[in-house]
């Protein structure tokens, strides 16, 4: 039995996890919506995790945005730049 040791730099991308916000729409009538967030050390892994975690619909469109790229307007003083859902 070996205890899992998570290497934060490698596996999380830093001391704190890197988050990617997930946006999707089901069909052309629906607006692109923020549906959640995943954490990953790079884009490929973020893409896969987003696809697998949020697979409760067959999305017509899905994309991810690094949380660090988001510029807050109303939430300037908040601890959470984007609310989870």
């Amino acid at each position: 039995m070996m205890k899992k040791v998570i290497d934060r730099q490698l596996e999380l991308g830093g001391d704190k996890p890197e988050f990617y916000e997930v946006f999707a729409r089901r069909d052309s009538a629906e607006p692109l919506t923020h549906i959640g967030s995943v954490e990953a050390p790079n884009e490929q892994l973020a893409e896969a995790r987003a696809w697998f975690v949020y697979d409760h619909h067959t999305w017509r469109e899905m994309c991810i945005v690094p949380l660090s790229a988001i510029v807050t307007i109303t939430e300037r003083d908040s601890k959470s730049k984007v609310k989870v859902v």
């Binding site: 490698l10 050390p41 892994l45 893409e47 896969a48």
Partner: peptide, 17 residues
């Protein structure tokens, strides 16, 4: 397709070490 991104993403992460 996403099975492949999953392994490629992990390979990239592991290689940083």
């Amino acid at each position: 397709r996403f099975h492949l991104s999953y392994s490629v993403g992990w390979i990239k992460a592991l290689r940083k070490d």
